[in-house]
Structure formats: structure tokens, C-alpha cells
């Protein structure tokens, strides 16, 4: 059980670095989509036996994170005719190195955390921290509105990984509520992206500077 989970987590970590290093937006969306599918499958590997609730939560996660949300974002960038992230605030290679550094740090840090006995072996905690950090890099170091939202999704994925430790504490209602909120959030964001593009003729958030002290 642990070996298959660990290998999936390694793929997730590799996808983080890939997302940091590419400039093509469609690629980033596809990476996040793949990450979403992998995350959706994970709850089934964590539990000893597959229950109906776990199956449902997993199906919803795969559908939403892996298919629906990426489809919405792909549509949004097709509507505004944008393909590439322009030169980010820090370059693609440096941010990839930063991500690699963060991953290493997360691996070291997780081993010093006071974890419950059964959680010391799998990569879950360190993968969660590294993914959260990757999300932060994308969110703060990219200029285009859409890539910033990809950062938010990666951040949310990182938190989801941590949630795998606590499958029993989160009732299905809450889990579905979190997913529904994520879906509505992306829906609102897609509308906003359209408005931003219409108003500023670009998705470059650096153009938004009229509100300051």
C-alpha cells in the first residue's frame, strides 16, 4: 500500500517542478489536471478497505480536479487568446531551482515534525509541504492572472495531501463542501479573468496599479 502511495507522491513532486519550469499555460493546466487525478486516487490507497464514502469523495475529486476545473480554465484561456506566460518576476529556471530546494527542505523538515507513529514512513507530510510551497511560488512570482490561479490550485492540492492523514475527521459533507467551493471559486475566477481581459486588454496583473496609497 505504502509503496504505491509513495510512488504516486513522487510523481506529484516531479509535476510540481515541471509546473514551475514551463512557460506554456496549456502545459501548466495539464500538469495541474494530472496532479488532480493522482490526488483523487490517493484516498483509496490510504484506507485499508474501500468504503462507499471514500469511493464517492474520490470520484468527485478526480472529476472536479482532474477534468472539470482544467476544462474551465482551458476554455478561459482560449477565450482570451493567451498561450504563454510572459517573463515572470523570477525566471523559470530559478523558480524551478527554488522549488527543488523547497522540496529538499520539506523532506528534511517533515522528519523532525512530531508525527503520530503510523505516519512517519510515507512521504505524505513532506509532499504536502513541498506542494504548498510550490503553490506559493506560482502564486506570487507569476504575472498573469491565470497562472496565479494555477498556483492557488497547487496550493490547495498540497493542503488536500495533508488532509489524507485525516480521512476519518472530515465528514463527506465537508469534503464535498470544500470541493463545491473550489468549483465555484474557479467559476468566479474565470468570469473575472474575462472582465480583466476586457478592461485591461491583458491578463498581466502588473497593469493593475491604480489602487494604492
Amino acid at each position: 500500500m505504502n509503496t504505491s502511495l509513495n510512488s504516486l507522491l513522487v510523481v506529484v513532486l516531479a509535476l510540481n517542478l515541471f509546473a514551475l519550469g514551463t512557460s506554456r499555460m496549456v502545459t501548466v493546466i495539464k500538469i495541474v489536471s494530472l496532479q488532480g487525478i493522482l490526488l483523487g486516487v490517493m484516498p483509496l490507497l490510504v484506507e485499508e478497505s474501500i468504503t462507499l464514502t471514500a469511493g464517492m469523495a474520490s470520484t468527485v475529486a478526480v472529476l472536479l480536479k482532474g477534468l472539470v476545473i482544467p476544462a474551465m480554465l482551458l476554455r478561459a484561456i482560449r477565450d482570451v487568446h493567451i498561450k504563454r506566460e510572459i517573463e515572470p518576476l523570477i525566471g523559470f529556471l530559478p523558480s524551478m531551482l527554488l522549488g527543488a530546494l523547497a522540496t529538499g527542505f520539506a523532506l528534511l523538515f517533515a522528519s523532525s515534525l512530531p508525527l503520530a507513529g503510523e505516519h512517519t514512513t510515507p512521504l505524505l507530510v513532506s509532499a504536502s509541504l513541498a506542494t504548498i510551497f510550490t503553490g506559493f511560488i506560482l502564486l506570487t512570482m507569476r504575472a498573469k492572472a491565470i497562472t496565479q490561479i494555477m498556483g492557488y490550485l497547487v496550493l490547495e492540492n498540497g493542503i488536500y495531501i495533508f488532509g489524507l492523514l485525516l480521512v476519518e475527521a472530515m465528514p463527506l459533507v465537508v469534503e464535498l463542501g470544500v470541493m463545491l467551493d473550489l468549483f465555484v471559486a474557479i467559476f468566479v475566477i474565470c468570469i473575472m479573468v474575462n472582465h480583466i481581459n476586457k478592461t485591461f486588454s491583458s491578463l498581466d496583473t502588473r497593469l493593475m496599479t491604480s489602487l494604492k496609497e
Partner: peptide, 24 residues
């Protein structure tokens, strides 16, 4: 207005990060 769209974008983005930390 452009200003209100800028305000909403900042509200959403900062709010999302905050709320994500609260979930963590």
C-alpha cells in the same frame, strides 16, 4: 469599472490564500 475589477481581483487572491491557510 477598472478600479473595481482590480479591487475584486486583489480581494479574491488575498482572500483565497488566507482561507487556504485557515483550511490547513
Amino acid at each position: 469599472t477598472p478600479r473595481s475589477i482590480e479591487a475584486t481581483w486583489k480581494y479574491l487572491l488575498i482572500g483565497f490564500v488566507g482561507i487556504a491557510l485557515a483550511l490547513l
